[in-house]
C-alpha cells in the first residue's frame, strides 16, 4: 500500500496511560507518556476522569501489554482495586498495572498486596519508570 516496505516483525510495547478520578491535572501522566514513547513504546493516552470500566475496556480494545494509572485525587484505594477486579473478571489479570501519583506508604503497601505491580511517588525518575515498565511488559510475554 504505502511507499514503505512493511517490516517483517516488530512488536513495540503497547501501554495504556489512564487517569482515573476527578482531579483535573494530567501533566504528570503526559510527561510519563512522552518518556515511554521516547523509549519506543506505543502509548495510548485516554485523558482525564476515566472510570475503571472505561480504562479496562480501553485496555482490552487496544490490546495493551501494560496499564499505567496516574492519580492525585486520593481516590486510589477505591479506584485501583476496582481496575484490578475488572481485569480479573475479563480474564485479563495477566496485564500488569503500575501506578503513579501521591500515594501514602501505607496505601502503597496495601495496593501492592492487591496486585498493583509497581508504584511511583512524585520524586521517581523517568528512567526508573521506563525501565520498570519495560520489565513489567516483558514479564508478561
Amino acid at each position: 500500500m504505502g511507499v514503505t516496505t512493511r517490516p517483517r516483525r516488530t512488536s513495540p510495547i503497547r501501554v495504556l496511560i489512564a487517569k482515573p478520578g476527578l482531579d483535573g491535572h494530567d501533566r504528570g501522566a503526559k510527561v510519563v507518556a512522552r518518556a515511554l514513547r521516547d523509549a519506543g513504546m506505543e502509548v495510548i493516552y485516554t485523558g482525564l476522569r476515566q472510570s475503571p470500566e472505561e480504562i479496562v475496556r480501553a485496555a482490552l480494545e487496544e490490546d495493551v501489554d501494560l496499564i499505567g494509572l496516574s492519580i492525585l485525587s486520593g481516590a486510589h484505594m477505591a479506584l485501583f482495586p476496582r481496575v484490578l477486579a475488572l481485569l480479573k473478571r475479563q480474564r485479563a489479570a495477566s496485564v500488569p498495572v503500575f501506578a503513579g501519583g501521591i500515594i501514602p506508604d501505607e496505601d502503597a503497601k496495601r495496593l501492592k498486596r492487591a496486585g498493583i505491580r509497581a508504584i511511583f511517588g512524585p520524586g521517581t525518575s523517568l528512567g526508573e519508570i521506563v525501565s520498570t515498565a519495560e520489565k513489567l511488559a516483558r514479564s508478561r510475554a
Partner: peptide
C-alpha cells in the same frame, strides 16, 4: 504518527471518545 526517532508513539485520539463503557 510514530516517532521516526524512537519508533514510539503517543496515541491520543481516544481522548475525544466518550461512549459509555458498556
Amino acid at each position: 504518527p510514530s516517532s521516526p526517532f524512537s519508533g514510539g508513539s503517543v496515541l491520543g485520539d481516544r481522548i475525544r471518545f466518550e461512549r459509555s463503557a458498556d
